[in-house]
Structure formats: C-alpha cells, structure tokens
Design a protein around this nucleic acid. Structure first.
Lengths: 205, 205, 205, 205
DNA sequence: TATGAATGAGCCTTCATTCAT
DNA sequence: AATGAATGAAGGCTCATTCAT
C-alpha cells in the first residue's frame, strides 16, 4: 500500500478523533486504532501528536481554501462571486464537518497552535477580504484594509455560526444557507458602498 | 465563612485557571491552590472537574446575558437598542477577556459540553432574536420566526468572531467594535425590512 | 507513618533496583512496588527518575564518606589511620553492596550524572588524598597534590577491585582485606617516603 | 564483500555507538545506520542487542589482552615486564578511549553482563598474576596463588581506575601513567617479596 | 542476500479522584 | 468542616525485534 494513501488514511482518522474528542482528550491509541494501523506507524509517518494535529489543520485548511478559491475564480459580478464563495464554504462545512471542527474549534482552543492558526486565518481572511475588496472597488470606492479585516472576521463568524445552525437543519441545501447570509449581509454591504453609514446613537445614558 | 462566598471564590479561581491553561491543561490542584482551599473542598462544593467547568460556563454565560438584557431594557429606537446590546457584549468580553471568551473557546472544543453550549447559545439567540423582532415590528412588518432565528445565529456568530478579533486589538473601545458590526449588518437588515431581497445569481455553472 | 521514614524506604528500594538492573533498565514501577508504595508517591516524594537516582547517589556517598571519616578521626599513626580507612571502606562495601554498586557502577556509566559524580569523587579523593598526605608528611616529605590525586585514584580502584574479589570470598573479614591492600600498597608508600623511586627501564624496544 | 569484513564493520559501528551513548541509549537503528547497513542484517549477523554488545566486549577485551601479552613477551627483567604490560594497557585505553574504556563502564552496570565481565577479568587477572609470579620467582621465593590472585585483582583495579583518571588528562603519555602506578605499587611489591610484611595495628578501638 | 515496513510491549509521568484523620 | 496522603488509570513516545518482499 503506497505511502501517500496510508498518510491520507491516518489524517482522516486523526481529523475524526480530534474533532470528536478534542485535541487533548484524543489519544494516539484511538487515532491509530481508527486508522487500522499501529501507533508507532503514526509516529513514523506523521511525528508527534502536535505535528499530527498541525498536519490535520493544514490539510483541512488547504482543502477549504482551494474550494473557495476555485468557486470564486469565475468572472461574474462581485455579489455573485461572494455568494459562490459562501456556497462553497457551506458545502465544505457540510461535507467535512470534522475537518471544520478541527480547524475552528480545536485549533482555537489551544494556545500552542497560535502560529499555525494565524497563518490559516491570514489566508482565509485574505480570500474573504479579497472578495469584499472587489465588491467595494466595483462600487467605485477605495477599499480600506483596516476595515476590510474586521469585516472579513465578522463574515466568517456569521458563516461559522450559521454552519452550526445548519447542523440542526440538515435538509437545507448550501445554496439556501448562502442566500440567507447574503440577504443578511449583502444588502448592508450594498448600502455601505453606496456611501451610507450607520452612526452610533446619541441618547444620553 | 458562608458557603455561597466560598463557591464564588472557587469559581473565580476556576475561571482564571481554565481560561489561562485550557480545560485539559488546568489541574484541580492549581484551581484549589488558587482558591486558597484544599482540593477535597472543591470536590465537596462543586463536584467533578467537568461539573466545575460547566458551573463556570453557566455563571459567566448568565452574567453576560444579564449585562445584555440590562443594556437593552431602555426605551430607545430599535437600532439603538441593538447597538447597545452589541456594545454590552463587547464590553463584557473585553472586561472578562480571560473569562468568558476563553471559556467559550474551550467549551466549543469538547463534545462533552455540547449540551451546555447549546443551551447558552439558545438563550443568546433568543435575546438577539427578540431585538430583531422588535426592529422588524417597528418597521411595520410581521416578524417570521423561521427567518429570525438564522438571522440571529448569524449575528451572534459575527459578534463572537469579532470578539476574537478584538482580543488582538485591545485598544479598540467596545463602542467602535459595536459600530463596526452595526455598519456591516444593520444596513443590510434595514434593507431587508424595507422588503428588499438579494436573489441568488443565474450565471450557468 | 512519618515522611522521613517513607523516604528512606523508597531510597532503599531504589538503591536495590538501580544496582541490580542498572539505571536505565530499572523501572519506576519496580521501585515503587519494591518500596510497597504506589508510583505517584515516589514522584511526589522524590521527583523524577533522574532526581531519585541522584538522591540515591547522595545518600550512599554520604554514608560511605561518613564511615571513612569517622574511622580515620582517631589520633593514631598514619599507617594505622590508612588501614582503618580501608577497613571502613571494605566494611561499608560489604554491608552496602547495593549502595556501592549504585555509586561506582551505575553512576559512572551515565554521562548525565557527571556533575553529581564529580562532586562525590572529589569528596572521596579529598579524604583519601588527605590520608596519604598525612602519611607523606609524617615521613618528612612535602606532599605534592599533583601526585596525590592519581595515587588516590589508584588506591580507590584497587580497593574497588578487591571489593569485587571479596564477593567470591564472603568469609574474609574486612580486616583481612584491608591488611591485604595495605601489604600491597603501604610498603610501597613506605619506600616512597624514604625517597626511593622506581624508574622506567631502558631496554631498547 | 566477505562476511568477516562485514562483521568487523558492524562491530566498529556498534562499539562507537555503544560507547558514545551508553548501552541503553544506543539504538539498533543508530548502529545499523552507522554501519551503513540495514537493521535486519545486524540481527542476521550478530543477533540480539545483548549478543551484539557482548561481541563488542569480547573483541575489545581480546584485543587488549593480546596487546598486553605481546608487550610482556620480551625477555627483560620482571619489573620491566610489568611496566611494559602497564604501558601497553594505558596505551590501549588511550587509543581506544571511546572503545574499551566506556564499554567496560557500560558492562559493569548491567547484571546481565556479569558473566562476560567475570571472564574478561579472569583472563586479565591471569595475565597479571603470571607477571607477578615471575617476579616473585625471580626473587627466589615460591609464589603462593592464594596471595597472588588478590594482589593481581588489586593491581588490575588500580589500573582501571587510573585509566579513568587518564581520560580527564589526555595529555599524559602512557609511559608516565605506567610509571606512576609502578611507583605506587612496585616498591611495595618489592618489599613484599623481600619478605617484609605490614601488620595490622594494635591500638584498642 | 538484503530491506522497508510494521508492531508489541513497556516506560516515564501526570492527574482526577478519594480515604483516613 | 477540612485536609494531607495516597492511588488507579491513562497517555505520549520509543525501540528491539520480525515479516513480506
């Protein structure tokens, strides 16, 4: 059995166990058993538990990123691009629930993986911010990075949260969820790029 | 020393240790020591490590909820109410950074705490959905729960994600963060309740 | 049961296991079991395996040193002092075979304990060299440290080796072994301090 | 490549790794890699790790013995013969510092190798006792085995210990070390074979 | 003959949890 | 009520040893 396949199997198992039990509670024994392989092999192929986890984060993160990038490569109007990105996101999360859990629940909980996460997050935000920037540029305004980043954060968070909600509504197709989020967010963005601004209220406390 | 005060002290210690070290890395020894009490006492008063953690999540969650409810009790325009709720949220997270924010991250990583979290989130969503409902009602439209709930989910998720972002930008006052989110979301909501709808694109795949 | 006694029991067990199995092959399980105690207690009282071993070396080394120092404290002629020191040495080795093994077999094999050993060795050599120095001084000559140290080494080595030999002749009392070594060594020393010197031969190779 | 050469190469590698890392810390992987051969080959040619180590001790011990025997074959006065033997010993240890000296230290620490060591030491003692016997015979006295053997033991031990000391003083040439030991020991032996005897003291305890 | 791949077994260490006082 | 002392149970990691090729 070729080495690369073995590695994929092990990563599959690891992602499954990590996402179900959490980084700490996951045991290398469990992972090895689930991969149908002996523990020393896991160490031989993928190193330490920490390294193994990082490998998981990398693989899942890359997959997600590729899915989104592929989905937004088409030359279509900016809003449609954004929608396609969201749809790809919800599709991925629906299909790789475990991978998503590893990325966004486990990794965030462990200070240790801050570097890894920062990198993934940077790539993610870059993609999302890129989408938003194109939107804003299309509206004739100049995108300001200092605003783009928190916006991207908010969008990703909203998506993540909706992904959770979808868990209890498994019959909802990704298209619908993406449209929900677009409806909630896009119209606001549209306003924004028409120059509207919401201002904090002045009611005395 | 009355029992209730002891319990509070222990919870304080536990929240501190849990948030600093993470759920697993936190040891009952550390918690007991930090509480200035012996370990068996911790077990006597608050039970298992798991139960202790849940108690922490409960207390912090309740405090957050109370802060938001108090902030939105004022009779002001709906958008201002929402903004005040957001501001209360970011204020709380900012003030209890090593409290709730991290506890929440920890809790999300462990399937064990899914029930606790679901409950907390449900309470949160209920509050937010209530705010949105008032907004929509004020706009003269009839709120449809089937749409309200996912909307609230998205908003809560965006808030949580921004709260994360704020951790790395501690100098930003809660007002600013709240306004950021309002600007991103409210205008869209405003459009929505004026009846506008964004429709999925028709570009052939 | 008082703590200090527990510690002594654990050190007894550790010395026994270390000397029989060697540092690496000795398992903390074995040590704990032999001490009639649970493993975590060993860690609680004496720390890491490495620290435990060092504690053993310290205790045995100190005991040996004290025995020799006590034996040589009497105001008697230098040769008798030396003999008494040797007798104390063989007595100790006979009575604490395990302790001696830990000191001179185990510790020497592990690079890790170089610092510990250097200290013990320094104390040992100091004692022995002190004896020799007094001898030489009694002979009216000025002791030269540069020669004393290797002399002390040779003496300790000879003693150690004889101690091994004694293992196969358990009926021989320490007095006799000490006298053997004195006969082998003292007469030479006597010659030395009368100014005699053996010179390397000049036979052409 | 002939089998015997392969074996020598493997033993070279093994001696290097064993002496550098110690018996336990040395891994069969390291040894195989250093020998430029695969691990199963090591097992095929030299068996278990334990057997491999014993083979190392054997080879090095034999080499040492041969060096000493060769050095003492010359027809020279008995004291010179002894000195030449010592010089050969210190020369060998100096040249194979990471070989025999450390192997010997390692072997002494493990009860497993007691048999091997006993044998080596017996051969060594036999050689030394032979030297001493010739000396005594040359002095016109009849050698008494019961005294020869412990004497030889003491001498061998003193030599081993000085060899250790030499490790920390690499600049000292073997001649000097041999002379040191002769000076410490030979004069005494000379006295002995002139019939002198040191008697235990009579000071009351 | 030669090896890449695989594993059983074990060791150090930690910690949640509970008695005995 | 309060605690010092004690332990069962795991978990990460390594390595000597052996098949299948």
């Amino acid at each position: 059995m070729p080495r690369s396949i073995r590695v994929e199997q092990m990563l599959d198992a690891a992602v499954g166990v990590f996402s179900a039990a959490g980084y700490h509670a996951a045991s290398m024994d469990d992972i090895a058993e689930r991969a149908g392989i002996s523990k020393p092999m896991v160490y031989a192929y993928l190193g330490t538990k920490e390294e193994l986890f990082i490998a998981c984060v990398h693989r899942e993160g890359t997959r997600l990123m590729e899915a989104i990038v592929a989905a937004t490569a088409l030359q279509v109007p900016p809003d449609e691009q954004l929608w396609r990105g969201l749809r790809a996101f919800f599709t991925f999360v629906g299909d790789h629930r475990d991978g998503w859990a590893v990325l966004y629940r486990q990794a965030r909980g462990q200070e240790r993986f801050a570097a890894e996460l920062a990198e993934m997050r940077a790539r993610m935000v870059e993609v999302v911010a890129g989408l938003l920037a194109r939107v804003i540029a299309a509206g004739g305004r100049r995108p300001r990075p200092a605003e783009l980043t928190p916006m991207a954060y908010a969008l990703v968070g909203a998506g993540e949260s909706l992904a959770d909600w979808v868990v209890d509504h498994p019959s909802e197709p990704p298209e619908t969820t993406a449209t929900r989020l677009m409806n909630f967010v896009w119209l606001g963005a549209g306003e924004l790029l028409r120059g509207a601004t919401w201002r904090p209220p002045v009611t005395p406390e």
